[in-house]
Amino acid sequence: MAKVEITVNGVKHAREVEDRALLANFLRDELGLTGTHIGCDTSQCGCCTVHVNGQAVKSCSMLAVQANGAEVVTIEGMAKNGALHPIQQAFTECHGLQCGFCTPGMIMAVAGLLKDNPNPTDEEIYHGLEGNLCRCTGYINIVKAVKRSAELLGGK
């Protein structure tokens, strides 16, 4: 077992975790933050994407102990004071989802993408979302939602 202190969505949590516990399981099972989804066992789907120290990572492919001392932001940390984050707003407006399972990971990945590149082209969006799979939409409305997110965030 290992002692960790991880700040999640601005709140510091001190816990004892198994050495092999994945960050995704820590968030879901220890903290009850089930917005972080686990869609595969092979590190490919990206549903579990969260930000660790400001960068998008797959929380299913990182140990909780590796995040010791880190700042983590999950989908639950995006909306502020009951108002959706602009990326959440854009996914709603553009219907950038169908079943919604991939959506939390998509939104966290988009947040990472737009931080590096506030006005991505379609090509850059495809490349930037290569780590996230959606099995419903065919991605058309997701790409629209990313462009709308860029507008709402003032990139354009």
Partner: peptide
């Protein structure tokens, strides 16, 4: 290499 999340780590 890989995808953005992989490249971040």
């Amino acid at each position: 290499i890989g995808d953005p999340q992989v490249r971040n780590l």
